[in-house]
């Protein structure tokens, strides 16, 4: 009961940890360079995990639409922008605005894919998020 809760909290914490570490690296190099090291180190680490524990491709190479190949490239842009942002506007504001963008675009994507369950509470959620963004803007 407790373990998944701690893992999920730690997962979120590590998102912010990696953004801060990459932000520090970007100060000495560049945001894109920080993103490169982030991906290379992550790739080497995950390769080692796969070699030690297995489980990389239990059912052979998985079939996936061609868009799956672009997830990594989008991730590179995401990490680069996060590194740039955290060094300039701070961790809290970066996290807030990224979360806001993720939620609002997630709702938009659901709509685009024709999933409109619970539209009213989701619209209310988006309204709260936008209000929070306006407030965040005021405080600067």
């Amino acid at each position: 009961m407790l373990q998944p809760i701690l893992f999920a909290l730690l997962g979120g914490t590590l998102v912010s940890v990696s953004r801060a570490i990459n932000g520090r690296l970007s100060l000495a190099t560049s945001a894109m360079s920080a993103s490169f090291w982030n991906h290379l180190v992550g790739f080497l680490f995950l390769s080692a995990v796969a070699l030690l524990w297995g489980g990389l491709m239990p059912g052979g190479w998985p079939d996936a639409p061609v868009t799956a190949w672009f997830g990594g490239t989008i991730g590179v842009l995401f990490v680069a922008s996060g590194s740039w942002l955290v060094a300039r506007i701070g961790a809290t504001l970066t996290a807030m605005l990224v979360i806001a963008g993720q939620m609002v675009s997630g709702v938009a994507l659901d709509l685009a894919l024709g999933q409109s369950d619970g539209l009213l509470p989701k619209a209310a959620g988006v309204a709260l998020i936008l209000a929070g963004m306006v407030l965040a803007r005021r405080s600067r």
């Binding site: 995990v49 998985p62 996936a64 639409p65 997830g71 989008i74 922008s81 996060g82 605005l97 963008g101």
Partner: peptide, 27 residues
């Protein structure tokens, strides 16, 4: 930029998840 990068995250999760649907999260 920060707001847009949240949109990138949505796309990234969607696309990376396409590997995980038939493979593993590790893959």
């Amino acid at each position: 930029l920060a707001f847009a990068s949240g949109g990138l995250l949505t796309l990234m999760v969607l696309f990376n998840g396409q590997w995980a649907r038939e493979g593993t999260p590790l893959f």
